[in-house]
Design a protein around this nucleic acid. Structure first.
Lengths: 197, 197
DNA sequence: ATAGGAAATTAACTTTTGTTATCGCCGGAA
DNA sequence: TTCCGGCGATAACAAAAGTTAATTTCCTAT
């Protein structure tokens, strides 16, 4: 039994009182996926409606700008969910690439299969709502940072809240997630050092 | 019977096959709210877990930056959902103000009550999932715009996709939602006019 | 261990944005 | 109708970010 399943069973129990022993209809249709560092999980154009819980490692979602540069939309790490949102929300091919930044272990489910399970076992719905609310919360927090903070403030914020993650990820991805260029992030770091932290 | 209820009943039927006549347990706990232009719907510090469907008008969600300026997080208009996300997601007092930009008609439900209804009538769950996915979709689209587009491109984008809404809303709110100042938006408009649109 | 390549820093220059202030315009209130 | 206040445009300057390119550092694969 994977550690992810135990965590999620525990979460399901807390959310809805479903005992781990009664959760097999759900976890029977999940599967563990292992990715090497740099391995692509979802490609541009993929249609699979993949939803996954990250057991270990960091994932990055990015798309290509008109000029060909990559734009990192977000990073996700241990105990977070990652979902092919174009396919799940709009049923259209993914415009995003999801790739492992480190060796990654996922617990994966197909969203179509999840829907079928939910129809038969609505007592699992709180888990789906949990995942949706979590994704929504993270997105809104990022939006809020964009409208209320300067790039430097966003970077300080990220350092304060996710220092461990920032340190595991190349700066250029951090920069792009902050909406700036790597050159600009480097200058921000310099300014922060000069002005006594 | 309000137009909103009919729309939502129709939506519920499409999503899950529930007939309008069978949806009364849900719509019995909704209520219509009318707001005058400029009236505040949710105040900073409010704890109510309000979820609403906009029948008519435009709503604006904003928060105060450290410097005291308002930062508009998003606008929502007809046929969209608006939710006090701090209270619903985190059960903490709202850091945001939700205010009507025009005369607004809402169909409102308390999220706690919604949860109770869903426990008893899980056949309504697809409607909750729809609303969550919609909010998520809009948030992700905005995040994507911030990491892939320049302020000018974001403005062009907004004009192309929501010209009607942009024209109903004071520029300063548009600017703040784009993450820039009103002065900067004014310059962008000027550049766009000069450079042959 | 070393060589090659990617990532980060730095520099020089351009462009854009922020900031502050002024001005004109329009619309609501007295 | 007139007055006032908010909103948008504009100007001038400072600050920050984009762009391109060169250099250094670091990591990885051989």
């Amino acid at each position: 039994m994977s550690a992810s399943i135990s965590s999620l069973q525990q979460l399901l129990f807390e959310l809805s009182g479903v005992l781990p022993a009664d959760s097999s209809p759900l976890f029977a249709v999940t599967r563990q996926v292992k990715l090497h560092a740099n391995e692509t999980y979802i490609r541009e154009g993929d249609k699979d409606r993949r939803l996954a819980y990250i057991e270990k490692g960091i994932m990055r979602a990015y798309t290509l700008k008109q000029n060909g540069d990559e734009a990192t939309l977000f990073l996700r790490w241990e105990k977070q969910f990652i979902a092919s949102h174009d396919t799940i929300i709009h049923r259209k091919p993914s415009r995003f690439v999801y790739r492992a930044l480190e060796d990654v272990t996922l617990l994966e489910i197909d969203y179509d299969v999840l829907e079928e399970v939910m129809k038969v076992y609505p007592q699992f719905e709180p888990l789906r709502n949990f995942f949706l609310l979590r994704m929504l919360s993270e997105s809104l927090a990022m939006m809020e940072a964009f409208v209320t903070l300067s790039p430097e403030e966003r970077y300080r914020n990220l350092l304060a809240e996710r220092f461990d993650v920032v340190n595991r990820v190349p700066d250029k991805y951090i920069a792009s997630m902050l909406g700036i260029t790597p050159v600009s992030l480097s200058r921000i770091r310099k300014r922060m050092l000069e002005k006594g932290k």
